[in-house]
Simulated scan of single mutants.
Amino acid sequence: MSTTDIETTTTATDVALCWLRITGCLLLLSVHGLPKLLHFDHELGVIEDPFGLGSWLTLSLAIFAEVLCPVFIVLGVLTRLATLPVLFLLAVSVIWVHPEWSLAEGQFAWLLLIVFSTIFVAGPGRLALGTRLAHHWPLLREL
């Protein structure tokens, strides 16, 4: 097998990373991101503002992390970079916003932290648009 064959062979790991990217992002989008985006005015009145940035900026940053970043992650474009705002948002949620949550109450946030930290560590895998485009645009190459 040549080096080229090895680089283009899809493995179970690549399929698993693709599955993890897609399903994790769909969960984040459907449960958190899209409701915030679609009900922006309502969410302005109920969003927590742990850093005193104001509800509009806090909500906008949350939508960035829960809507735009998942699109990049699903596509596998700048995947590791796109996971950072998601991980930050989830960490803020469980540490500063809801420190009173028991493990059972915060299990969805903790599971999402596990999913997105795994994606951060492993990268997007070979079944990612960014992996294919990186040959032509080196700036898209994963770290």
Rank of each mutant, 00 (worst) to 15 (best):
V86P: 00
T131Y: 14
V92E: 05
F120T: 06
G106K: 07
L113H: 06
L103F: 14
A91F: 11
W56D: 15
V46Q: 14
R132E: 11
I119V: 11
F51E: 08
L89M: 12
T131N: 13
A122R: 14
L111F: 14
F72C: 03
T58C: 07
E105P: 08
H42W: 14
L44F: 09
S93I: 01
V121D: 02
A91Y: 10
R126C: 08
A104T: 13
P85F: 03
F51L: 08
F88W: 10
F120S: 06
L127M: 12
E100G: 14
G76K: 04
D41G: 14
P50R: 08
A128T: 01
D49V: 05
T118R: 04
T131Q: 13
V46W: 14
V92M: 06
L87S: 04
V74M: 11
L111H: 11
P99D: 14
V67I: 07
A109Q: 13
P124F: 00
E66W: 00
W96G: 03
G123L: 05
A128G: 04
C69Q: 02
F108D: 15
F116L: 04
L57H: 10
T79A: 08
L78G: 12
R132G: 10
V77F: 00
E100L: 13
E48T: 05
I73W: 01
A128F: 05
T118F: 02
S55V: 10
G123E: 05
S55G: 08
V67A: 02
G106E: 09
L113C: 07
V71M: 15
V92D: 07
P124H: 03
T79C: 05
H39S: 15
A109H: 12
A109R: 09
A109I: 04
V46M: 15
A122L: 07
G54M: 11
P99Q: 13
V97G: 11
E43S: 13
L90D: 06
A82N: 03
V86A: 01
